[in-house]
Each structure stands twice: as C-alpha cells, then as structure tokens.
C-alpha cells in the first residue's frame, strides 16, 4: 500500500471531479449551456494521452541509450494505453460537437490533426507487429516513436493555433486562461486532469508488469 498512494489519489481526484463537475457552478454561456461541464471529462482524456505518449518517447530514447528491453516494454505499453484515451477523447468530442457545433466531425483543424496523430500511433503498433526479431523491432519502433511524437505535437497543438479552429485557444477563440474557463472551474478541471493522468499511468504500469511476467515466462519455457 505504501507505494500505491498515487493510485488512490487518482481515483479520489476523478471521483471528486465527477461530483463537483456535475453539481458545481459553471458560467452560463450561449450554445454551450450545461455542456461546458464536458471540459472536466473530455479534455482530461487528451491530457492523459499526451502524458502517456510523452512517457513513451522518453523510454524510447532511454531504450536507444541503454538497449534495455524493459524500456521498450514501457514505451509500447504507454502507447497502447494512450491510444485508448485518444479514442475516448475522439468519441466524447464527436458527441459534444454534434450538439454544440452541429455535426460530429466539422472538419476542425484540431479534430483532423488528432485523427492523423491517432493513425500515426496506430501505425507504430502495426509496425511493431510486422517485425519479428526483438532487438530490431525495439530499435526501429523507438526511432519511429521519436519522430512521431513531435509531429503529433505539431498536428494537435501548434497547427490548430495558427489557423481558425472551433477549439479554444485559436483563431480568436479564447483559451483556458481567458474567458471561458472561470476561476470556479479551474480547480475541478485541474484535479480531473491530474486524476486521469494518474489513472492512465496506472493502467500503463499494469500492462507493463503483465508484459514483464509474460517475458520471463517465455524465457523459462
């Protein structure tokens, strides 16, 4: 139990954000109405995905430095978990957009960018499966991962800010720092973000530990 305090913290933070997110006060805005509460649930998916991909690229670099296969395991399981959060983010975003923007996929640059980024990371997983030899697979996919990460950042965070986007923070829309995120929402939003990041890391660590067990069993057999 002494090492798992952060798991409980993550559960409590999300639990708190569910209660406070549904019951707490929110600014009354046109079009958005009550769906502004989706900020507590849709946006943390992307933060969790981003953190997991960041962990993955860090361990890919560490793999190339050390040639320790454990680093490669962490990298792939972080992407495996990150892609779940990515799909959850896309799905919740489409449900939200359908009501507030009028269609589920309004060809928004951020939406399209995240779709391409998703395909890139799916390609990472396919690439891994295509390579038989363990060392080669780890090395090639680590290099691919290091290239994919900055492209993902550009597609999802930089390009949408340069053009007109329906998402906050671009094309004259306010970002979290300005109008639409008022100070009552901020603590709930940040606790949800931290909570979902912790849960994401927890799931990734579970997958990593399973993979380690599989690996040692395969070596024994």
């Amino acid at each position: 139990m002494r090492k798992s305090w952060w798991k409980i913290l993550g559960l409590c933070l999300i639990g708190g954000s569910i209660i406070a997110g549904l019951l707490g006060p929110v600014p009354r805005l046109p079009i958005l109405n009550e769906t502004i509460r989706n900020v507590y649930f849709h946006v943390p998916m992307w933060f969790a995905m981003f953190t997991l991909y960041l962990i993955s690229v860090i361990y890919s670099i560490r793999y190339l430095n050390s040639n320790d296969i454990k680093n490669d395991f962490i990298a792939v399981e972080a992407v495996n978990t990150g892609i779940i959060f990515c799909f959850l983010g896309l799905l919740t975003g489409m449900q939200w957009a359908n009501i507030t923007w009028g269609e589920p996929w309004p060809n928004d640059p951020k939406t399209n960018g995240s779709a391409i980024a998703t395909l890139m990371y799916l390609a990472y997983l396919v690439l891994r499966n295509a390579l038989e030899e363990e060392q080669k697979r780890a090395k090639i996919s680590a290099i691919y991962n290091i290239f994919a990460f900055p492209v993902m950042i550009v597609l999802m965070y930089i390009l949408p800010k340069l053009t007109d986007s329906l998402h906050p923070g671009s094309g004259g829309n306010s970002t979290f720092g300005d109008i639409d995120m008022d100070n009552q929402m901020r603590p709930i939003f940040y606790s949800a973000v931290v909570g979902w990041i912790l849960i994401g890391v927890w799931i990734a660590s579970l997958r990593y530990r399973l993979r380690l067990i599989e690996n040692t069993r395969n070596q024994i057999d």
Partner: peptide, 17 residues
C-alpha cells in the same frame, strides 16, 4: 446522475485495484 457516474467510476476503480 452524479450518483450513477460515481458508482460506475468506483466500480472501475475497484476493478483496477
């Protein structure tokens, strides 16, 4: 609704543990 969501989430938490 808050109770239902919390129940679902606690269920997932227990499952993870």
């Amino acid at each position: 609704v808050a109770l239902v969501l919390l129940t679902i989430f606690i269920g997932i938490g227990i499952y993870l543990i």
